[in-house]
Design a protein around this nucleic acid. Sequence first.
DNA 1: TTAACTAGTTGTATTTTACAACTAGTTGTA
DNA 2: TACAACTAGTTGTAAAATACAACTAGTTAA
Lengths: 173, 173
Amino acid sequence: MNDAHRSGCPINLTLEVLGDKWSLLIIRDIIFGNKRHFRELLTQSLEGIASNILADRLKKLLEEGVLTKSDDPSHKQKALYSLTEKGIELLPVLAQMAMWGRKYMPVSEELAIRAQLLEEGGPRLWAEFMDELRERHLGIPLKKRPAGRPSVGARLQAAYEEVVARQKTAAAG
Amino acid sequence: MNDAHRSGCPINLTLEVLGDKWSLLIIRDIIFGNKRHFRELLTQSLEGIASNILADRLKKLLEEGVLTKSDDPSHKQKALYSLTEKGIELLPVLAQMAMWGRKYMPVSEELAIRAQLLEEGGPRLWAEFMDELRERHLGIPLKKRPAGRPSVGARLQAAYEEVVARQKTAAAG
DNA sequence: TTAACTAGTTGTATTTTACAACTAGTTGTA
DNA sequence: TACAACTAGTTGTAAAATACAACTAGTTAA
């Protein structure tokens, strides 16, 4: 955490924190996969992060105030990683990157469905999702939960599983 | 350009192209600073990029189809770098990162003013700016230019210079 | 003719990343 | 109570990326 920044440009300062190939993937897994423990992040990482890199990035994200770490009451050794407001507000950045990747890179269908829903839902949906994250990570209760409608997190997850199920059917049949 | 991607996740694929500390800064200088030549990007880089890193990143961005390279008629040796549509559509990503950096990092005032205007203008302003970039980089003429109003690029630049001028006055007076 | 400008390349030291193995302690089960 | 599995990491080493300075080769304008 040296204060010797390369410049005071907002984009540069963001890149100094997040400009590598792993940090935003960790944030992604916490936000969209609800991965909260070291081992979850390590073994369920789609891209196969190394344990020393994961430990280093978690440390840096803690130092930068993007994450916090607390004890998990269920297990003396378990650490629970939570997003801060600063971390939660990375969702629009991730959404915008996901939209760009979906449009211009060779994404796989089941992993692109979340990006599609985030694009269709737009900033309104992002805000709703961020409120859910505030409840989950910061303990801030949701003011209004639209009656009879699953959460954004649940809808994204359901859409993903639906595509996977359809793919299995297509492959088998 | 190896096809061995770590995963088909849109966010991951975006990071595979742009996940380092320099690529998006080069895009930023092209978009907001209208830097089109190697030497401009090298010597006017706020953060001081090294020439071999710049050469390497330009090469990768060309390979990925984010930039194109052409001869500058004014000088046989000059290369002119232009954004593709894929590159132009990185503007929302940069805008979102700039907004996050402005909110959560120790930005300098004169470099944060553009981020502020991009935030206030929202996606409508981004779309207008992207049309200007399409004219400049792709030769696509602007359909409608609001009469008597400077371009978005000019407004961003003017706002920056205004802050710098005010800072000079304050420092001298 | 010459100085300054053009886009890079080359060599070397430092830093970062990747990969595998390992530590130290905790928990659930036989 | 012993033991296997699980917890969050650390350590050692090789490979890759980055930083820094010097340099190449050709072009342009005075």
